[in-house]
Simulated scan of single mutants.
Amino acid sequence: MNIDVSIDAAGPIAPEICPVRPLLDRMADKWSLLVIARLAEASGNRLRFSKLMRAVGGVSQRMLTTTLRNLERDGLVTREVFAEVPPRVEYELTERGKSFLIPVRTLIGWLEANWPDIQRSRELYDQND
């Protein structure tokens, strides 16, 4: 399947033209990346909802729930409910979720390598503003 993700000068690409656009938007959002990163760092790559919420920091319960549902729907995270009182729910990266860490680590490496130059560019830009 060849998917056109090029930038159109006329404006944003509509989802019907680029069917992966909604997924790109979601994967690039702040909370999805943080949730995936925290699950990757977790012992055994599993975390309970409350621990995940603390690990991510700053996310509301509603936003974390929405983010986890979207990641589960896309097959990046699994959710396991344990029949206990109170109920225990744990989240874990799937193999697809773990494979997403490869391009994320590449992106982080690029950011780290280019960060000093980006900072200088920002300073120069701000001086001329």
Rank of each mutant, 00 (worst) to 15 (best):
G44M: 05
N45F: 04
N45M: 10
N45S: 14
N45R: 14
R46K: 11
L47T: 01
L47C: 07
R48N: 09
R48P: 05
R48Q: 15
S50C: 06
K51S: 13
K51R: 15
L52F: 06
L52D: 03
L52W: 04
M53E: 14
R54N: 09
R54V: 12
A55P: 01
A55I: 07
A55E: 06
A55K: 03
V56A: 03
V56H: 04
G57A: 13
S60T: 10
S60Q: 04
R62L: 10
M63L: 13
M63Y: 04
L64A: 08
T65R: 15
T66Y: 10
L68C: 01
L68E: 02
R69H: 09
N70M: 05
L71H: 00
L71F: 00
L71W: 02
E72F: 01
E72L: 06
E72A: 12
R73F: 11
D74E: 13
D74Y: 13
D74N: 13
L76E: 07
L76Y: 13
T78W: 05
T78P: 03
T78Y: 10
T78E: 15
R79I: 08
R79L: 07
E80R: 15
E80A: 10
A83W: 10
A83I: 08
E84R: 12
E84D: 12
E84W: 02
E84K: 10
P87V: 12
P87W: 04
R88H: 03
R88I: 14
R88Y: 01
V89D: 00
E92L: 06
E92S: 12
E92M: 04
L93S: 06
T94S: 09
T94C: 04
R96S: 14
G97W: 01
G97F: 03
K98T: 06
K98P: 00
S99T: 12
F100H: 02
L101C: 03
L101Q: 08
P103C: 01
V104Y: 10
V104A: 11
V104M: 07
R105M: 09
R105Q: 11
R105F: 02
R105T: 05
T106K: 12
L107F: 13
I108C: 11
G109M: 03
W110D: 08
L111T: 08
L111A: 11
E112L: 15
A113R: 11
A113V: 09
N114W: 02
N114A: 14
W115H: 10
W115A: 14
W115R: 07
W115K: 08
D117S: 12
